[in-house]
Amino acid sequence: MPSKDTLERNQVWVYLAAIIIGLVFGGGVPALAQTLEALLWPALAVLLYTTFTQVRLGQLPAAFRDVRFVSAALIGNFAVLPLLICGVLLLVPDDPAIRLGLLLVLLVPCTDWFITFAHQAGGDLRRAIAITPALLVAQMILLPLYLWLFMGADFMVIVSAGRMVTVFGIVIVLPLVAAFATERWAGEAPARIATIERLGWFPVPLLAFVLFLIAASQVEAVMGSIPLLGDIFVACIVFLIGGTMIGLAIGKAFGLPVGQARTLVFTLTTRNSFVVLPFALALPAAWEMAAIAIVFQSLIELFGMLALLWLVPRKLVPST
């Protein structure tokens, strides 16, 4: 049986295979589209629960003890990156659904696989783990504000979407509360902590299952969006390059040591795609490109991480 580390190292291929299999399956059995879409919501809820259990929400106060690193991460993610995203949006068609999808995913820093990538690149694992609760709380508070600033009148369409409140409560809030309750239940008991660690096996296969369900239930939308994927690809690549450069600049400006500087690069280039995915899926049919843009961005990001895993420790932030 492969180790958890091996599974995480190869997750990009797992997700790509899940999407391809989903498209083939959905194209061959289109009558099952509604059933597969119905399975998507509980699958997302379980995925987010297992993911949130790996974020130590009880450690939120401790995250702010290292003022220099936390300031660099928060300023980079929530003050500088939005300026980059303004430019990135100029690279895609003036389509509200595409813009919304990119805004949803690019504005929210990752709180899960960024830890894995930062660690694999020789980053500071302890600080990567410590910063995740702060990133999660900050993005949930600031995302509505940024959507309102970027989308204007279209933001009201998003807020008034029929399923939005229900999705937020059932697919986001309940898993978050359940994860926090699980963390409190575990306390300092080694056996219970081990249970939470075992839950860390589930995010990769569950996300693969979610991607399979999306691809299988949205075959027509995915195939119809192919002409637009080129522009989204360019925009996401520009974001990755820009985020990397910003991370290097802020790390240098704050005088961060090598491990922390590497971690900073990864928190500025990885995004919380499947945490915001439920919001995109809850929108009316006319907004289906938002979810497709999020899934496509996450795949581009994962391939980008393969490049950064080599570049960051060897070229961009070497040990010297």
Rank of each mutant, 00 (worst) to 15 (best):
D5N: 07
L7H: 05
E8F: 02
N10K: 09
A18R: 00
G28Y: 09
T35F: 13
E37Y: 14
L48H: 01
Q59T: 11
Q59E: 15
Q59R: 14
L60V: 03
A62H: 07
A62I: 00
D66S: 10
A72S: 14
A73S: 15
N77S: 15
A79Y: 13
L90F: 14
L91T: 07
P96L: 06
P96V: 11
R99I: 09
L100T: 11
V105E: 01
V108F: 07
C110H: 01
D112S: 04
F117A: 03
G122V: 05
I131F: 02
P133M: 02
L135I: 03
V137L: 08
L143M: 09
P144K: 03
L145E: 08
M156T: 12
I158N: 03
S160M: 11
G162E: 14
R163Y: 12
M164A: 08
I170G: 00
L176G: 06
A181H: 03
E183S: 08
E188S: 10
I193S: 11
T195E: 06
W201I: 01
V204M: 02
V210N: 03
V210S: 06
L213C: 12
L213P: 10
L213H: 10
Q218C: 06
M223K: 11
F239K: 08
F239L: 12
L240E: 09
I241L: 15
I241S: 07
G243M: 13
M245I: 14
I246M: 05
A249K: 08
G251M: 06
P257R: 10
V258A: 14
V265P: 02
F266L: 11
N272I: 08
S273Y: 05
W287S: 06
A290Q: 10
I294K: 02
F296C: 14
E301H: 15
L311V: 11
V317P: 04
V317F: 07
T320V: 14
